[in-house]
């Protein structure tokens, strides 16, 4: 018998922009126990999700090929990062909230799209399909730590950042409930009770957990 640390539940939802159901099923099965997942099937849906979440995601996982979408994953990323001229964008992709969370490409195109092309668009990394979930979980865990630190190190949240106050607004779609209460200090260390196995049930989303 050995002591184990329960897996952390990530504080913010992860947005997966992906046109094909099987790929969504995979991510839902493999990541559903770690965080709230939101699925956007097209560039337009992705923009809706970003708006209703005020751009506050743990990370965005982005497919390049978005069948039937106005924008492909690269263009969408440029739009989210404010790197695309507004007049080139369809209406739904204009005036988006600032998206500062990491964006990771998850793509089935071998090396057709080179790294610089993706990082230029504003991506923080990319991984090929089939997805190596050990790697992806590591990436997302790191993003989670960074996000927690960020929250800890920014004092006086309420006045300087309007975010927490807006939290309740527009929680959209599937699993919009993943948000915790306003992260005031992040100091509350919560014992890892009821955390580990109960979460295993696929898409059963855990109740909001403050960061460790």
């Amino acid at each position: 018998m050995k002591k184990i640390e329960p897996a952390t539940i990530w504080t913010s939802p992860v947005l997966y922009v992906e046109d094909e159901l099987p790929n969504w099923e995979v991510v839902e099965l493999r990541l559903g126990n770690r965080c709230t997942l939101q699925w956007a099937k097209s560039s337009e849906e992705a923009c809706d999700r970003v708006r209703s979440q005020k751009g506050e995601f743990l990370a965005i996982l982005m497919d390049i090929q978005l069948s039937g979408s106005a924008l492909d994953g690269i263009q969408l990323t440029r739009a989210l990062r404010g790197k695309e001229a507004v007049d080139k964008l369809p209406d739904f992709a204009r005036e988006l909230p600032r998206v500062t969370c990491p964006i990771f490409f998850v793509t089935a195109y071998g090396n057709l799209y080179s790294g610089p092309q993706l990082t230029d668009a504003g991506a923080d990394g990319w991984m090929p399909k089939p997805v190596d979930f050990l790697k992806l979980v590591t990436l997302l865990s790191r993003a989670n730590v960074m996000r927690t630190l960020e929250t800890l190190m920014s004092p006086g949240l309420e006045p300087s950042r309007p975010r927490p106050a807006m939290r309740g607004v527009g929680r959209g779609g599937r699993g919009g409930r993943g948000e915790g209460p306003p992260r005031r200090t992040g100091k509350r260390r919560v014992s890892p009770s009821n955390k580990s196995h109960a979460r295993r049930k696929g898409s059963k989303v855990p109740q909001p957990q403050p960061t460790r």
Binding site: P22, V26, Q65, A108, Y109, G110, K129, P130, V131
Partner: peptide
């Protein structure tokens, strides 16, 4: 080809 091979493989390996 990469896209057509890798997409099903994603399901076959990860599910």
């Amino acid at each position: 080809t990469s896209h057509e091979l890798r997409t099903p493989l994603n399901t076959i390996i990860n599910i």
